[in-house]
Each structure stands twice: as structure tokens, then as C-alpha cells.
Computed example of a mutant assay.
Amino acid sequence: MAFDFIAEHLVEREADALLRKRQLVEQSSGRFIQVAGKQYLNFASNDYLGFADDFIEIQVQHLGSHSSALVNGYNKPQQQLEQRLCELLGYESAMLFNSGFSANSSVLKALFQDKSVAQSSAIFQDKLNHASLIDGGLHSAAAMVRFNHNDLRHLESRLQKSKAKHKLIVSEGVFSMDGDQAPIEALCKLAKQYNAWLMIDDAHGFGVLGEQGLGSCESIKPDLLIITFGKALASSGACLLASKQMIDYMLQFNREYIYSTAMSPLMASCTLERLERLLNADKRRAQLSENIAYFRALAKEHNLALMESTTAIQPLVLGDAEHTLAVANKLKDKGVWLTAIRPPTVPFNTARLRVTLSSAHQADDIKKLVDSLVECL
């Protein structure tokens, strides 16, 4: 029968405890989530600063931008957001995307769209980079070279052996599934040493790290910086920051940007408002740091083997996918909402509970989480 593989693959996924399902969320914030009429403590949100509950009053005439940015969809709120980000992060130019996935994948594809150039080009990617970066690299015309996670020696050996004229090193600022940080300063030095460019996806660092909350790259400027608005800003969309020449190039060749309806004026205005609040969110960032330290201290007391992360992402690797899913379901019975992260999102035999902390969490919430983990494990 035609397309019988669909049913077969679904059966296989379910048998391996890897079948994904959507949950209809009725309400959600940095601290709580409500599903099917029941409220849970939310330890699965990327709302690191608890902005989701903050009220925003915005006066915008149009909800939608109505067309591509290159037709007539580029409007004043978009321009203001781009200019403010350039001012804060020290870049010449910027362009907005409707999602971080679109930004990451499309930038890599567009940069190496010329096959004659791509023949002498290579993308060097950390093995734990986000799927959007991997997909962008695979679908570009350049060679893609992987290096071991945060392994500078391995990366340097790859750079030394490469005969490519155009080299691009790509990494995340904070890795979404492990919670550890890239050695960005060292990556910058390697890039300069080997005449390469550096691209950083700082989805999980922006808003949280740095003295002003401007992320992993607050004091170090990679050639290409991607930030997203759906995490610490509790908004939606993403932005590429680079030189004016680079943005002009993207305007010619980035198909996702050229052929997508532009970000809405409403979303751009809301994001700009959140951005200004983020700059004054030192107390929230301090509270988040306290919550992270408290969680790790309690976990250590109870011998919970957390990964080495000092960020809001605190993974607990259990290994087996079926076991991890079972523990996540037991936690729900106790009123704690945690996501079981399973392959192929993470490597096989590294299924995990991905704990994400927010400044909105209280000490009692974190204690309940740890007590529940101990009981369920």
C-alpha cells in the first residue's frame, strides 16, 4: 500500500518510547503551567526571567505586516527594534526573522548559496549545535565539518587540515540541551588565527548572561550573532546582527526572509518594550542565579547527578528513553511539569529530564521539585 511507511514508523516510535505528542496548554508562566484543568509547577519553560506574566500596553495600528519585508512589510516598529539591538550589541546592521530556526538555517544556506564559492568553503560546527544550525549547514553548498563538543584542540586540528578559503565556525552561546557555555573568547581567537568567521546562536544566553543581560556576546562580538526573543524576552522571533555588507547580502539571497511575511508590527513593538525592561532586570537575573545555586545545592545533597551547568538549563541524564518518560509522568502526578527529552533530540542513551529554572520560581517550588525527583527516581 502506498505510504504504509507512515503507520510503520509511528508504531516503531511508540515501541521505542520516542513518540512525540503535543499538550494543549491552557495557561503558562515562568512558575506555573495549566494543562487539562490542572495546575503544575512549571520547570520546562524558557521564560527565564518570568516576563510572561508582565502586562504590556502597546499602541499599534496594524497587527500584521501584510507582506514580505522586501515588498511593503518593513515597518517602523521593525526598524526601531533592529536599530536598538544594533546600538546595544555594537553591530552595524540587523534583520528580523519570525523564528530562531528560520534565522539559523537560512543564514547558513544563504551565505553559501553560490556553488562556485561554496566549493572552497567549509562550516565548522560543534557536534551539539541545535538542529536548525545542523540543517542549515547540511542544506548549504559548503562542506560541513563537525568538531567534538567545546573541544578547541579538535576544532583547531580540523581548521589546520582544511584547504577551504572561506571558513565559518558555528556554535551556540549556551547549549540548549546540556546548559553549558561555549568558550567564545577562545573561539574568536581561533577564528582570527585561521582567517575564519565566527557565528554564535545565543538563544539561551541573551537576556540572562552578561552584566547588562545582553548575553554570551555582550563583550565579544562574533561576525554573525543570532539572538531569539522567545526565551528570556518571553516574546517571539529572532534577529541576525552583522555588518551592513553582510545584511545587504542576506537581503539578496536569504530565501526565508525574502519570501516570508515580515514580523508583525505588534510583535516587534512588544519585543522592543520587553527589551527595555530586560536592561533593567538585574534583580530578576540575580534571583535566577540564586535559584540555580539553590537547586544545585539541594540536588547535590540528594546525590542527583546533574550535568555541569551554571545556567538556567539543568539536565538530569537518565539514559533510557522509556525510563525517562516514566519518571516525567510520575512527576506530573506530583504536580511537577518536566519534559522528557529523548532521541533524536539528544544522542541515544542520553535521554534526560531537562530542568529549566526561572526567576519566578520560589524556594519552596525548587524544594518540591528536588523532593519529587528523589521520590520518583
Rank of each mutant, 00 (worst) to 15 (best):
200 I>H: 10
78 Q>Y: 07
241 L>D: 10
357 L>F: 04
376 C>A: 15
84 R>T: 15
207 G>C: 06
187 L>D: 01
321 A>D: 06
196 A>L: 01
345 T>K: 05
254 N>A: 14
164 A>D: 13
209 L>V: 09
116 S>K: 11
30 G>H: 06
323 H>T: 13
26 E>I: 00
51 F>P: 02
9 H>S: 11
2 A>W: 05
369 L>C: 09
61 Q>D: 13
55 F>R: 14
191 A>W: 00
280 N>Y: 09
348 F>N: 13
255 R>F: 06
366 I>E: 12
61 Q>I: 07
336 V>Y: 04
147 F>P: 02
7 A>N: 09
165 K>L: 14
226 I>S: 10
68 S>P: 03
350 T>F: 02
71 V>H: 07
137 G>N: 03
106 S>H: 08
192 K>L: 12
12 E>N: 10
13 R>L: 12
157 S>P: 01
105 S>A: 14
165 K>C: 13
313 I>S: 00
39 Q>F: 04
7 A>H: 07
232 A>C: 03
344 P>R: 00
335 G>C: 07
68 S>W: 06
115 K>C: 10
154 H>W: 02
108 L>P: 06
309 S>E: 06
370 V>P: 03
207 G>T: 06
354 R>S: 15
211 E>H: 11
161 K>S: 15
219 S>E: 13
107 V>G: 05
140 S>F: 00
320 D>S: 03
200 I>Y: 10
181 Q>F: 05
188 C>D: 15
359 S>G: 04
350 T>K: 08
91 Y>R: 09
205 G>H: 07
174 V>K: 11
63 L>W: 11
374 V>L: 01
37 G>K: 00
145 V>I: 14
213 G>C: 01
176 S>A: 15
9 H>Q: 11
249 Y>D: 14
55 F>M: 11
65 S>D: 05
263 M>A: 02
372 S>L: 03
329 N>S: 13
181 Q>H: 11
100 G>Q: 09
159 L>W: 10
367 K>L: 10
289 S>M: 05
35 V>A: 01
302 H>M: 04
256 E>T: 15
304 L>S: 04
225 L>K: 02
329 N>V: 06
203 A>C: 14
280 N>P: 03
71 V>Y: 04
45 S>V: 06
308 E>G: 03
285 R>W: 08
248 D>I: 05
363 A>Y: 04
131 A>M: 09
196 A>V: 01
240 L>R: 01
197 W>T: 13
261 T>V: 13
318 L>A: 05
22 R>T: 11
67 S>K: 01
53 D>E: 14
190 L>D: 13
376 C>H: 08
233 L>F: 08
287 Q>G: 03
27 Q>I: 00
168 L>T: 12
1 M>R: 01
293 A>C: 09
145 V>A: 08
197 W>H: 14
345 T>P: 00
10 L>S: 05
